[in-house]
Every structure is written in structure tokens, then in C-alpha cells.
Amino acid sequence: MSIIARNIKKTFGTYTALSGVDLNVPDGKLVALLGPSGSGKTTLLRIIAGLEFPDEGSGRIEFHGEDVTNVAAGKRGVGFVFQHYALFRHMTVAENVAFGLTVRKRKDRPSKSEIADRVNKLLKLVQLEALGKRYPTQLSGGQRQRIALARALAVEPKVLLLDEPFGALDAKVRKELRRWLRQFQDEIGITTVFVTHDQEEALEIADEVIVMNNAKIEQVGTPQAVYDHPATPFVYSFLGNVNRLQLPWRGFSSGDAPVPYTDETNKIAFVRPHELEVLRHRAGLDGEVASVRSIHSAGSIARITVLRGASEYIDVELSRQQLDELDLAEGDSILLRVRRSRLFSEDYEI
């Protein structure tokens, strides 16, 4: 089931949450809506779900070509998993999962034994078949998350929507669960949209990432594409660390190709920490001179901070091996060269 949103506008009083957003989620894909808080991503998800409606006269939502703009949430066939799961505390896990079936009109409602079968299958699917009789307060965060997912899937939705699905979990469980979600989505193949502010999460599991900022979509693409070719300064900074280098910059990239921006002083060069090359200072080599201020070598890669000129701090990432070969100490003078970069004019806003 594909999802198409056209020109969605949403304002709350004087606050603009979405200013004319277009969205296209292909059938069967796992798509991440990525952005900082206040970027409008959750509002967009809620509009897709039918929990909010676009402003009067704007926008149109289609599920598989069918206009659902004015259809209520319960009739859209969406499964929605809330950030804090919203499990009903007075019901057992099994009752929670069965809820969507038991509230159906009598003629559409499966028999009690059919409902019990379905609940069992779903609990097995989320690998929690032993917990049916427990209450939500007796479960861990990760278990609640999966129960919320099972409950959403019980009504056989055409689309699965997740709001910050891993936001309330601790780091280790979060990693496990997001890998699990990816596998899970591969198995059942349901079109899925999830909201996150964690770029690592989005880049790791999504088929496609939609980066949002300031009520607008900044860029859409595969994780590789948005990471390697950010379309805007915002995307550059939001997806991982980035250095903003003052121009002009002397020196050449490692391939001896001339750096193209040496005198474009009204622009700023965006360079990721691993796209910089560090060399020992030697006569006859081109590059910007900088001095090493700090070295953090705990972890699989080493991070060093260097100071260029009077006040320009630059972060560089090296492999441990490179660091060992360079044999750096704080205060050493080095040469910095740029392998890859992208220029943006100076007057952008993040």
C-alpha cells in the first residue's frame, strides 16, 4: 500500500507545523521521517494516521491511489504505535492485542476462539507468546514496544506508523529492537513509516530517509544518498558531525586535484571529520597548518581536535592505525588536507 501526501499544511494558532509538504512512500518500504524536535515530523505522521487533519483547503492524503483525506483514523486501516506505547493498563497483554478485534461490530467480529488464535499468532510473531496473561506494568520497555506493535497489527492494517518507536528505551535495547524491526518488516512486508530524531537509527534501518526541518522536507533519498550527498547545509549538519571551514583554504586533496574553492570567500566549506587528511608538517607539501589541541583515542576510531588560525577548531577522525603512524602529541603542528567537501553560501540558516 503506497502513501502519497500532497501539499500538506498544518498550523496550530500562529505556529506553522507543516508548510506545504509532499511525501511519497512506496509500497512495502520502511521509511524514516528524520528531523529535530519541532520539525513537523510527528505532525506529518499523525496526519497520515488521521489523528490530525491538514488545514482547511490544503492537502490530500492517498492510500494506494484512494483519497483518505477526510477518513477518520479508525477507518483508514493504519496501525499506529505511540511513543509511549499507550497500552491499556487495566487489560492484560492478550486483551490489549485483541482490543481492535473485540470492538468491531458484531457482524465483522471474529468468534472468541478465532480472536484467541489471532492473538496467539501475533504474540508468537513478536516473540512474546508466554506473556499473554501479564499486565503491561509487568513488562519491560522493549516488551511493551513489541506488544504495542502486535496490537497495532491485530487489525491487519495496510500501513504501519511508528512515532519515535525506540525513543523511550535504553541504548542497548534500542539497538537490538531496531534491528529486529528491520527484519520484522522484511518478513511481513508492510509499508512502514517511522518518526525519529536519531540519525543513526534512520540511516541504519530505513530504505528511504526523509529529512525534515522547519516544517519542510529538506531531502529525500536512500540513507547512502542523503549521507553522502546532502542537499542542504542543514542535512549536512544533521546527519553526523561536520566541520564548517572558513575560506580561503590552501592545499590540495590527496588525489592532487586542486581544491576548487580557494578564493570563494563568501562561501563556507562543509567537510566531515573523516574527510580530512592529517599529515606531518614537511616542507614542500601543501595544506593548511594547524596545531593539535586534543586527542581522544578510546574507541575504534580516534578523534582529534585541531586549531587552525586563532579560533577555528576542527574535528578530524582517523583510524587508530593512522594515529599510531603519525605519532601525534598535543601541541604538534600538522598539515590538514581536504579529501571531499561541499560549498554552501554563508547566509544559510540551520
Partner: peptide
């Protein structure tokens, strides 16, 4: 009792 509970119920098709 956050509105989330009501919304969850609504998305599951409850009146």
C-alpha cells in the same frame, strides 16, 4: 491519562 490512550483506541477502530 494522556490523549494517547484515546487515540490508540480510535486507530484500532473503537467508537
Amino acid at each position: 491519562l494522556e490523549p494517547e490512550f484515546e487515540e490508540a483506541s480510535a486507530t484500532l477502530g473503537a467508537t
